[in-house]
């Protein structure tokens, strides 16, 4: 059962009809619906192509948040071997919104860190919908330090609506934790590769995405504020999220033009959730590629070029 987004409604109808026809045929041997079903399939395919040919920024946000999109856990299971989760910030708690630990990527030992949103009600609550609390960033910082000490590359998978706006999170220093995580990524002398696999929400994303190389999935987004939040502040109307999404330039394609994102990873037609395995495979290939790209720089030279990348970022704007 596919979960359709609001703009996919016409598609849902056609695909639903085709499915109905086939179900009817299964119950009645004399009925031959192959041709009709195939015609519907063809119509659906055309519609899908048209819908996804030019997704508006707001629709991209919806695809990026699609509940069936592969999440951090799926990538770790498929792309890494010997994943050994390491828990806790040694200070307060273990944050389940952040996954992280030792693993092998193409046999090479690495540290992998990412936001996990969960895939059903129970796991979503347990993962706090991918919204980390200070403990999550502090766990990540600990892992980054470990990576630095043992010379392991860091791979981060970013997928968060943002940092968790809660009372305890603020009391325990949400801002400081995010600032330190960003700072740590600008201090370690090992390669840092980051992929935005869904939502790159504000400070919570920056804390993990300050990398040597940043890739984004085709329909992922990375933004200073959610379109809804921006709309309610600047338009004084949270229903203006379409306009806000447009203005914020939060798509992978715009961010590549702004030189914030280094590479856009194509998604299967209809979004990552329509072919999860293929998406995961492309992400794996992109990470391998990024690792190769940074392999010629080591230690301090690598760190300095990472810092330089950020110092020079944005000097051209979109017009360039």
């Amino acid at each position: 059962m596919t979960n359709y987004l609001d703009f996919e409604k016409p598609l849902a109808e056609i695909e639903g009809k085709a499915e109905e026809l086939r179900a009817m045929a299964r119950g009645n041997e004399e009925m031959d619906v192959t041709e009709e079903a195939a015609a519907l399939d063809k119509k659906a395919a055309t519609l899908l192509r048209d819908l996804y040919k030019n997704l508006t920024p707001w629709r991209k946000c919806q695809v990026a948040r699609h509940p069936e999109r592969p999440h951090c856990k799926d990538y770790i299971e498929a792309l890494f071997t010997e994943y050994t989760p390491l828990a806790g910030d040694r200070n307060f708690a273990d944050d389940h919104a952040v996954m992280g630990g030792l693993a092998r990527f193409n046999d090479q030992p690495v540290i992998v860190i990412g936001h996990e949103k969960g895939n059903d009600t129970k796991s979503r609550i347990e993962r706090n919908f991918g919204m980390a609390r200070p403990e999550g960033y502090r766990k990540a910082i600990r892992l980054m330090e470990m990576a630095d000490k043992f010379g392991l590359p860091v791979i981060t998978l970013v997928d968060t609506p943002g940092a968790y706006p809660g009372k305890g999170a603020e009391e325990r220093g949400q801002s400081e934790a995010i600032a330190r995580s960003t700072e740590k990524l600008l201090q370690i002398k090992v390669p840092v590769m980051s992929v935005i696999i869904g939502e790159g929400g504000s400070g919570g994303a920056v804390a993990f995405a300050t990398a040597d190389k940043l890739a984004m999935l085709e329909h992922s987004v990375y933004s200073v504020i959610s379109p809804e939040g921006c709309a309610s502040i600047l338009w004084k109307d949270s229903e203006k999220m379409r306009e806000a999404a447009e203005a914020l330039r939060l798509t992978a394609q715009d961010l590549q033009k702004l030189e914030v994102c280094d590479r856009v990873i194509p998604e299967p037609l209809g979004g990552a959730h329509r072919d999860r395995a293929a998406t995961i495979k492309s992400v794996g290939a992109a990470v391998s590629q990024m690792m190769k790209e940074v392999a010629n720089q080591k230690g301090d030279a690598l760190l300095q070029s990472r810092r330089k990348k950020f110092l020079e970022m944005g000097s051209k704007g979109l017009a360039a």
Binding site: L186, S202, Y222, L250, L258, V260, R307
Partner: peptide
């Protein structure tokens, strides 16, 4: 906070200014 009118580039001031502090 960040200046929304500069979108992602305002967010990128977090790492940028962090480098300055370092």
């Amino acid at each position: 906070g960040a200046r929304m009118q500069e979108g992602i580039l305002s967010l990128m001031q977090m790492p940028r200014t962090t480098v300055a502090v370092q």
